[in-house]
Design a protein around this nucleic acid. Structure first.
Length: 599
RNA sequence: GGGGCGGUAGCUCAGUCGGUCAGAGCAGAGGACUCAUAAUCCUUGGGUCGUGGGUUCGAGCCCCACCCGCCCUACCA
């Protein structure tokens, strides 16, 4: 039994999330967390919505809302979507809470005191009308090299040369077309070179563990070579105030400085709401505790460089030395688990072009588990993977429905017809022992794959076991045992089959928790065997410290009753009624319907 | 431009230390069966493992070059 922190990437609150997002961080982290709880670990799974930064301001302006309003709306939608998917967060909160503000400011002060925050002046683009920092991404102009008219501030798409926004001829804001001003501005920079050696050591150690995906560790080591100080403040009026710069309300902490601290602040908030305000330390300052960070590949740099750098600076563990702050020596990530991208057909998801599938729509039309199944079985685990509606329907119909759902259905139907309850088994034959051993073996084989974040292989292995049980029924032919003289053998086979179905259901529960509870009911069980998260409206803990929240929805849950990752004997005599199908077969026409929605 | 990943049967992909590694699932074909959401079970198909070199007794797996696709390139979350 060990402490496991599941640190799940924070969805950005500038609109609803599409299925590519939850394929990257959501489903993989939940499968892992559910499994680890079943395996007996003490899991703390935290996340929340990331609500600061320029894009929210831009979107809010465009939609005629305040940033606060947009963040509130997006937060609610995202909370509902993630809850609908059954993601079992201990706490899913947000970055505009007073608790988060205070933790971030404490982190900043400690990094500053330890000497890892250095003040520098740099030339940066400002939007004259708002006074806000204009990120390079939002600046366009004519390329000074090839004269391409729509070069970006960071690079010319036409000639490929790297640019600085100040190089552009006739620069203009992509947001409103105005000409940006380039002004000298002061900011706090995180002295990344001062922690570079410590980062390198940490990464080498992680590489030696052999657990990280090769591309993640390589990429992380590569970006270490060109490490430079990085600004942690911005000229912006939406964000966390900079300690010591209270007299400069237009300067705030950079969104990424605060967002990654969310893992810590959410853990603290969870402990406070639990009434045991120090309990978070068990996951953060105990050297034995492990932490797993889940995200899409675009976030690797923030989790393998920026966040560990902040932790090292806070711990006083860089070349400038220092003392840990009030939180003590905080653990660096055990593993950065990054997914690649889920593409939609042969192109990336694109909200602006309408080339997108929202989580909400998916849940409404098909429910959570078919999507969870698809993501686990065919998701972007180690390379980009394509979602197509045709593939989705095929996976659902031929694997979920025909493979697993049908096994549940045929077994329960036979038991209901012949006995009406779970029969006692007579003497076991070799074929019975064999199938039971196969299913028992699944706990080891599936479990070790999930532990290594190999969900595609894990769910395939679970489905292979399901296939073995289907084969068992074909071989033993219980449906032919109509004579009274075969009654005992019939009872034995159906008992064994039911036991296998029950255990397969346990094997599949981390992947398909909703279905697992339905199957549990089909097998005569009551209530929710596999605990599900709930949405709860909570009061802001520190209304005076944050961004004006008074109450907000969180995802939380009590997962203490999670069943163990092991076979669980079925109870003889449990009534079994004729079942209704657990999974729904999809008509192939949904492919056409869905494609038609896009246009 | 720099860095990374990938290019294996019609489709989606496995292939850890180089030597039963040429595989799985789906689709297709044939057969069996009928308890089940026309589900299930069995059999089957042969793809010069992107291209061209090289190392080796032996290479999808190592090296070099090239072609193609994708991602990242840091104040875009």
């Amino acid at each position: 039994m060990s402490r496991v922190l599941s640190a799940v990437a924070w969805p950005y609150a500038n609109g609803p999330r599409h299925i590519g997002h939850v394929a990257g961080f959501g489903v993989p982290s939940d499968v892992f967390s559910r499994y680890m709880r079943m395996a007996g670990h003490d899991v703390l799974m935290v996340s929340g919505t990331d609500e600061h930064g320029t894009p929210i301001l831009v979107t809010a302006d465009k939609e005629g809302k305040t940033a606060r309003e947009l963040a509130d709306e997006s937060n609610r939608v995202i909370v509902e979507d993630l809850h609908g998917l059954g993601l079992s967060y201990d706490l899913f909160t947000r970055t505009t809470t007073g608790n988060h503000y205070r933790v971030v400011q404490e982190m900043f002060r400690t990094c500053l005191r330890n000497g890892y925050m250095v003040e520098q002046t740099s030339l940066s683009a400002i939007s004259p009308s708002t006074g806000r920092t204009l990120p390079d991404r939002y600046i366009e102009g004519t390329c000074p090299i090839c004269k391409y008219a729509d070069a970006r501030g960071d690079q010319c798409d036409n000639c490929g040369n790297q640019l600085d926004p100040t190089d552009l001829v006739d620069p203009r804001s992509k947001i409103n077309g105005e000409t940006p001003q380039f002004v000298e501005t002061q900011h706090w920079f995180l002295d990344l070179p001062a922690v570079a050696d410590a980062l390198g050591e940490w990464l080498d150690g992680r590489e030696a563990s052999g657990t990280w995906r090769p591309n993640v560790i390589k990429f992380s080591q590569n970006i270490l070579e060109e490490i430079r100080p990085r600004a942690m403040t911005r000229d912006i009026d939406w964000g966390i105030p900079v300690p010591g710069w209270e007299d400069q309300p237009t300067k705030r902490l950079y969104v990424w400085f605060d967002a990654v601290i969310g893992y810590l602040s959410a853990s603290i908030e969870w402990a406070r709401r639990l009434g045991e305000p120090e309990k978070w330390r068990e996951w953060w300052t105990d050297a034995e505790a492990e932490s797993f960070y889940f995200m899409g590949k675009d976030n690797i740099v923030f989790h393998s460089q920026i966040w560990p750098a902040e932790l090292l600076a806070h711990n006083g563990a860089g070349s400038r030395g220092g003392e840990p702050g009030a939180y003590g020596v905080l653990n660096l990530p055990t593993e950065v688990v990054s997914s690649e991208f889920l593409t939609f057909g042969d192109a990336q998801f694109s909200t602006s072009r309408g080339h997108v599938i929202y989580v909400r729509d998916m849940l409404e039309r098909y429910g959570p588990d078919p999507l969870r199944y698809f993501i686990c079985a065919a998701g972007p685990e180690t390379s980009d993977a394509a979602f197509t509606w045709a593939d989705f329907v095929t996976r659902n119909n031929s694997e979920l429905v025909a493979g697993w759902g049908n096994l549940v259905n045929r077994t329960a139907t036979m038991v209901a017809k012949s006995f009406g309850e779970i029969p006692a088994a007579g003497p076991l034959e070799e074929v019975d022992e064999a199938v039971l051993a196969t299913v028992r073996g699944g706990f080891e084989s599936v479990g070790s794959l999930v532990e290594r974040h190999r969900l595609r292989a894990a769910i395939a292995e679970a489905m292979r076991v399901v296939g073995e049980v289907n084969k068992y029924l074909t071989v033993t032919e219980p449906y032919k045992m109509k004579d009274e003289s075969q009654r005992e053998r019939l009872a034995t086979v159906l008992h064994v089959a039911l036991q296998c179905v029950s255990d397969c259901n346990t094997l599949l529960a981390p992947f398909l928790p909703h279905a697992a509870n339905k199957v549990h009911a089909v097998l005569g069980g009551e209530g929710e065997l596999f605990p599900m998260p709930r949405i709860e409206q909570v009061d802001e803990l520190e209304p005076d410290s944050g961004a004006g929240l008074t109450s907000y929805p969180v995802i939380t849950g009590d997962y203490s009753a999670t069943p163990r990752w092991e076979p669980r004997p079925v109870v003889v005599g449990t009534p079994i009624a004729k079942p209704t199908p657990v999974f729904t077969k999809l008509d192939p026409s949904v492919v056409e319907e869905e494609l038609a929605r896009l246009s």
